[in-house]
Design a protein around this nucleic acid. Structure first.
Lengths: 377, 377
DNA sequence: CTGTTAGCGCATTCAC
DNA sequence: GTGAATGCGCTAACAG
């Protein structure tokens, strides 16, 4: 049979078939300049006849460029590898990288061994540039990139590595939505802060504090140890006794800010099933600002279970505008960040650096965030 | 400065520094057999002194093996690139591939150009094996792998490509959960079928039909055109007039199956807010079987909005046991599939094939599914 | 145990 | 325009 396991054809086979030297074939392959139409034609036929495809390794070895960019995702082993935001960023990066002629390949570092393997790979000229998505503040990892020849762009500012990075205005976003709650008449807010290892969590926390100004009470902050939904539930549970009395907040807002104490109707939460557990104090918490959507989702669930109505009794806000923001009931008022743009911007920055465009060290770009007004606040 | 942009050191530089020939260094690098402790020591020092790291391209060129496996995700351009199930599968595959000494790299084909680029790459001995996650039935894509030397394993059976594949017992899973509803006394079920381009959707549909047997009514099937949440809402909306009267189903079940017509209490849905739109017929639909969790989520939402109580009036089931199954209210009774195991199994199968283990053509393995009993049904 | 040598498949000078 | 030669960095087979 002719479909026997014959070896893969090389550029020489093609040359022989076309009756030219393999140097000419190579030229044909790379732009086709300086090759006669006649020869080109014969080479084309030979290529398709031989089913020739150039070998990747040989190419990158010869030209000393991989034409590839690696997107590295670093997560703790137990976490979901690819969150929605990262997925969106990948889409964006893949697009602009592809348009620029680069192949994006993504690598996952979620265990010690995989991390080690990837680090070794990075040292071996695996790609022409690197996009680093490390969700944690594990600078050891990023640190390992210091002596890599190829440029690196990070997805998060913070830590004190000198890499260019693209991130969102986390501080400002959290500030904005907190102010929004305050302006709407909410008086006392619980802040559920993201995990301490995350620079992002810290930035958002700063935004909250700034918005609260004098009214900031450290006691009204819950420090979560992950970004996951349970933290929202746990936080609300822990602060259970400190929430406003159901109905009080709504009435307060309706009646104007200062008459809060006077009004304390216990009605309103009728069908929803307020049980005995709900005590509530008149000057209690009437708003929960969460460091991300998942946590907010958990907070809403718990509040609802406890008999509070969201947002009538207690407002809740998220952060990220992830897909689940639309899944909660009521839908989440949250801070939107365009993750696809995040990926695009990172890729563009990386391309610029690879092209040798000058930029100061510690170059960072901050992408804007906007409030998505929905039902929960 | 010594940190000037000097060229990357090669194996020869190391050899020179260690005072040995570079053949010896190569041996040291690959296992260290047949190299004296003395030389080894000097080489080790030279390597760390020169900050030497072997070049990837040169290695794969010389050994004619990449030691990499590419996981290719093919999605329509507008879809979320990495769904939760794929993310989990990636985790599994990455683990076993890594343990076997392979680097997993994932490639995304979501546009025509990226697909084309990847196909070209695949033809260039980019990896030693391929894991193909194509959510659609686009066999053209898979077809392109026919003449690839390296082995391929697909994530989905169906189509008529001769590739080994790993999938779940979709048919049986849908059968099981449908029977479960029937056995619980539900009389008339609406089936919301996944998009027609998906073999998985078809398999599940078959399971539903088999479970229904004589009771199957083609008119009680809604054909969604994507896997997304809106389809659940749309389906329920379209069948609005054909649902059971609120309260009827619960009473029916409680009173025993055959007295259904006699009982038709209109109560029960009190606080939930049954509005005028809810007519309901006594022998109406009292269960909704959905082809996936997202759709089920939409169905529940719509039903709730229409004033039905889930599961008292209408039961709803999902499929996949994705993370959002826990986010719905009530939590979703669904069919669980272990996506991480999916990835692991695919990777193991691929490794076996790469190792030359014999297996018949069209080799496929089906992973089990189990029912997750939660609140919605 | 170690040095030498011949490729791996291709890009890229050079002469012609 | 085209062919021949050299090298990319490394592995592997071979003598010694």
């Amino acid at each position: 049979m002719s479909t026997m396991m014959r070896k893969k054809p090389t550029i020489r086979d093609v040359a022989q078939l076309a009756g030219v030297s393999y140097g000419t074939v190579s030229r044909y392959l790379n732009g086709g300049e300086h090759v006669s139409p006649d020869a080109a034609e014969r080479i084309a036929q030979a290529i398709s006849k031989a089913q020739y495809t150039p070998n990747n390794a040989a190419r990158t070895l010869a030209r000393q460029r991989t034409h590839a960019v690696a997107l590295i995702i670093q997560v703790e082993s137990n976490e979901t590898i690819v969150q929605a935001s990262v997925s969106a960023a990948m889409t964006g990066a893949n697009q602009v990288l592809g348009d620029a002629g680069y192949q994006m390949v993504t690598l996952i570092a979620n265990t010690e061994s995989s991390t080690e393997r990837i680090l070794r790979l990075v040292g071996s000229d695996f790609a022409d540039g690197y996009l680093l998505f490390s969700m944690s503040n594990d600078d050891q990892f990023a640190e390992s990139f210091r002596n890599v020849g190829a440029p690196v762009v990070r997805s998060e500012i913070g830590g004190d590595l000198p890499y260019p990075a693209v991130d969102f205005t986390n501080e400002q976003g959290q500030y904005d939505i907190t102010r929004y709650l305050l302006d709407k008449g909410r008086r006392r807010l619980l802040y559920i802060c993201g995990p301490g290892y995350s620079p992002t969590a810290l930035n958002r926390y700063e935004g909250f504090k700034r918005a609260m100004g004098d009214q900031f009470r450290e006691g009204d902050v819950y420090f979560a140890d992950s970004w996951e939904i349970d933290n929202g539930e746990m936080a609300v549970a822990e602060f259970e006794s400190r929430f406003v009395r159901p109905g009080a907040a709504a009435a307060r807002v309706a009646a104007g800010a200062d008459s809060a104490d006077a009004v304390a109707a216990d009605s309103g939460a009728a069908g929803a099933g307020v049980d005995a557990a709900v005590a509530g104090v008149a000057d209690g918490i009437d708003g929960v600002v969460c460091a991300n959507d998942d946590i907010a989702m958990g907070a809403i669930r718990r509040l609802t279970h406890m008999g509070y109505r969201v947002p009538e009794d207690v407002s809740v806000t998220g952060f990220d505008d992830s897909p689940i923001a639309l899944l909660s009931d009521p839908k989440l008022t949250t801070v939107r960040q365009d993750s696809q743009l995040h990926g695009e911007t990172m890729a563009r920055l990386l391309l610029d650096i690879m092209d040798g465009k000058p930029l100061g060290e510690r170059h960072t770009v901050l992408l804007p965030t906007t409030i998505m007004h929905r039902r929960s606040a």
